[in-house]
Write a protein that binds this DNA or RNA. Structure first.
Lengths: 341, 341
DNA sequence: TTGTATGCGTTATCAC
DNA sequence: GTGATAACGCATACAA
């Protein structure tokens, strides 16, 4: 910048003012000269120096969860990322994407704190996530996407999981199902618990016995895995009475299940109606197309960016957790039980 | 850091040495004291200050192309991103993801130059991309992924598009096809031209007339669009003689085409064999599953990171363009023409 | 209106 | 071995 100032024959301050658009009280002629010099010299402000001087980087971080899924198939991440990049641009911020492959949360923690961002978006982590708690304790600006943790400073954005699960159950009950298995896993995760609550409420409101809802988890870890999916299939094969419907919280796993079940002699939707969550491209392209609880992922992500930016700016949040409505996309995998009956 | 130094009762320099692991010639006792003080005070080095002092941010940027596709469906981006994040972590670098939604390339250009990264990965842009050329002209460190431009300083990583297209043609010719339509679009794009060359070579080597390869483009813009896809379908309906096979460079568009063609009375693969590129999850889940030219996207992306890091470090590259082999994944969409004949 | 001086947190070059 | 001191590039309060 000093070169620009020299070339334009002014002081650094003047150049700084012009370059920042604070041209109040600066002759248009001078301003022009500075601008031309800057352009001629190919000047671009040094982000690090600016960050050091102002204390703000105009960048925020993003931590995407679940490396394995992120690697290949899940369009959940893509949708969230699309919403985040759009939000970043609208706030004129850059985005630091942290790899999901860190060996442990502490190295990620150190990277975030020293990573040169003003705050970070945490996506889809678990309710007892140590990283989230540590960041919150350090008073580092954070917003949780698609989950929340039990901490007084926790800000988050999510869909209305409870209502979404209730929609799924209502749909299945209307189709005549009286025994629904729900694979939720680890109830330390906020969304899993919320979905369970929603399903239980819907069962109750339908006047059914609580036993109509069969709870299963994914096995060790509480996260959906191929083994967990296969275990579920085996359970279904041997179950007596066998559930006639299943609610699978994870879209990718639901897809695998629907492809795997025929090998076990279970047809979808004839023998088992399946409802998943997220309703992204994966559900549309599933065979058969999958009934799924849709949530506005891009809106959620963009809202999270808004919330984070406000938080960074020191604004008091209107609400600790912002909810977006869910919707049921009915497709073939939930079937028409009436025909069967 | 000055606080840490004070708390430990040493000078800034000593603290800096300890914190950077350059503990040569520093008493273990002093070192311990510094480390403990740092931990107690929750010290984390300021990335901006470090960047300003060293002239390196340890960050590199990524520009993903094609916002619309990125938004929703294409797993190409996911795979590339997975490779990049893995590469970033292995080099202990952070990654700045630039939104794909910039209003124009100049604002992106300014953002990259001022964005506080040491270099940037450009993914899948076109051969006459102004951004690439501008960055190259400014001597800003850049590596192109999945394309390259005609510039003496251009470094890039791509698959062997020519061989890949040749594989596709050979496969189709072996199945008996003698009239193959290839939808490539804008030949300013390196990979499109390479694929055309490969296809032409394979046609020639098979002893067929050049006319056996029918060239079509996607219409205005040269990029695959829904309209372009529908135009292609209409062309196929009216063509006489009608091609019996098609090579579609874009996986997502191939998917749409395969779903759309039956509405036009064309069955895949019976009336038309279809081969696409990339062979990601999309091709696997297509109906029918799609024969596709696979490329090691994650390896390519990781190699691009390597190349960029070396470039940033000032190393002379061994090769200006690094190629990875392609492979043909044969699935149902290319069909078994023998049965038809 | 424009120039001067100082600080941001760290590294690096020196003396001590 | 350790401690001052000068950059790094920019913003800003203050003086002129």
């Amino acid at each position: 910048m000093v070169d620009v100032a020299e070339a334009a024959g002014v002081s650094r301050t003047t150049a700084s003012f012009v370059l920042n658009g604070r041209e109040a009280g600066i002759p248009a002629e001078t301003s022009q000269r500075v601008m031309r010099a800057a352009h001629r010299l190919g000047y671009h402000r040094n982000a690090s120096a600016l960050a050091l001087a102002t204390g703000r980087t105009n960048r925020f971080g993003v931590v995407l969860n679940d490396p394995e899924r992120f690697l290949t198939r899940d369009t959940y991440c893509l949708n969230v990322l699309a919403g985040i990049t759009a939000g970043a641009l609208s706030h004129d911020r850059n985005l630091v994407l942290h790899s999901s492959h860190y060996p442990d949360w502490k190295s990620l923690y150190a990277d975030i704190l020293g990573g040169g961002a003003d705050g970070t978006l945490l996506v889809g982590r678990s309710g007892d996530d140590e990283l989230t708690h540590a960041l919150l304790e350090a008073r580092y600006p954070v917003v949780c996407v698609s989950y929340h943790v039990d901490h007084p400073r926790c800000l988050s954005v999510d869909c209305d999981n409870e209502a979404g699960a209730a929609l799924a159950v209502q749909h299945l009950v209307e189709l005549g199902h009286r025994r629904i298995v729900m694979c939720s896993g680890d109830y330390r995760n906020s969304w899993m618990l919320e979905r369970l609550r929603g399903a239980q409420r819907a069962v109750q409101e339908a006047g059914l016995a609580p036993e109509s809802l069969v709870q299963r988890d994914w096995g060790p870890g509480g996260w959906p895995t191929v083994e967990g999916m296969q275990n579920l299939a085996q359970f279904l094969v041997g179950a007596d009475p066998r559930p006639t419907a299943a609610i699978i919280g994870d879209e990718a796993t639901a897809l695998l299940l629907v492809e795997y079940l025929p090998e076990c002699g279970i047809q979808v939707p004839d023998d088992l109606a399946v409802v998943s969550f997220n309703s992204t491209e994966m559900s549309v392209r599933s065979r058969p197309p999958m009934t799924s609880v849709w949530q506005p992922l891009q809106e959620i992500a963009a809202a999270a960016v808004d919330m984070l930016v406000r938080h960074i700016d020191g604004e008091e949040p209107h609400e600790k957790i912002r909810r977006f409505p869910a919707r049921l996309d009915i497709r073939e995998s939930s079937g028409a039980v009436e025909q069967k009956v």
